[in-house]
Simulated assay, not measured.
Amino acid sequence: MVSTLTEPFQRGTERIRSDHPGVGLGLAIVTSIVHAHDGTLTVAPRPDGGLRVAVRLPAAPSPDTGR
Rank of each mutant, 00 (worst) to 15 (best):
M1A: 14
M1H: 07
M1Q: 08
V2I: 11
S3I: 02
S3R: 04
T4W: 14
T4D: 11
L5Q: 01
T6E: 07
T6K: 09
T6I: 10
T6A: 12
T6F: 07
E7D: 03
E7S: 03
P8T: 03
P8L: 01
P8N: 14
P8G: 08
F9A: 08
F9I: 01
F9P: 01
F9R: 08
Q10I: 00
Q10D: 01
Q10P: 07
R11L: 15
R11A: 03
R11Y: 06
G12R: 04
G12F: 05
G12E: 10
G12L: 11
G12D: 09
T13N: 08
T13C: 14
T13M: 14
T13Y: 09
E14K: 12
E14Y: 13
E14M: 08
E14A: 15
R15M: 13
R15A: 10
R15C: 14
I16F: 13
I16R: 11
I16N: 05
R17F: 15
R17S: 06
R17W: 12
R17H: 12
R17L: 12
D19I: 09
H20L: 15
H20I: 09
P21C: 14
P21L: 15
P21Y: 15
G22V: 04
G22T: 02
G22A: 07
V23E: 15
V23S: 04
V23C: 05
G24E: 07
L25F: 06
L25H: 00
L25K: 07
L25D: 02
G26S: 13
G26P: 03
G26R: 06
L27P: 02
L27H: 04
A28I: 03
A28Y: 13
I29G: 03
I29F: 13
I29D: 06
I29W: 15
V30A: 11
T31C: 05
T31N: 11
T31K: 15
S32A: 15
S32R: 09
S32Q: 10
I33G: 04
I33W: 11
I33N: 01
V34R: 05
H35G: 01
H35L: 12
H35N: 11
H35W: 04
H35S: 13
H37W: 10
D38G: 04
D38Q: 13
D38N: 14
G39F: 11
G39N: 07
T40E: 10
T40M: 08
L41R: 02
T42R: 12
T42W: 05
T42K: 09
V43A: 03
A44F: 05
A44W: 05
P45M: 06
P45Q: 07
R46Y: 02
R46N: 12
P47M: 10
P47H: 13
P47N: 12
P47R: 09
D48L: 08
D48M: 08
G49D: 04
G50L: 05
L51Q: 02
R52F: 07
R52A: 14
R52Y: 10
V53P: 00
V53R: 02
V53E: 00
A54P: 04
A54R: 12
V55N: 05
V55W: 03
R56M: 05
R56P: 06
R56I: 01
R56S: 10
R56A: 14
L57P: 00
L57A: 02
P58A: 01
A59L: 14
A60C: 01
A60F: 04
A60L: 10
A60I: 02
P61R: 06
P61K: 06
S62C: 15
P63G: 07
D64C: 10
D64W: 13
T65M: 02
G66N: 00
G66V: 07
R67S: 05
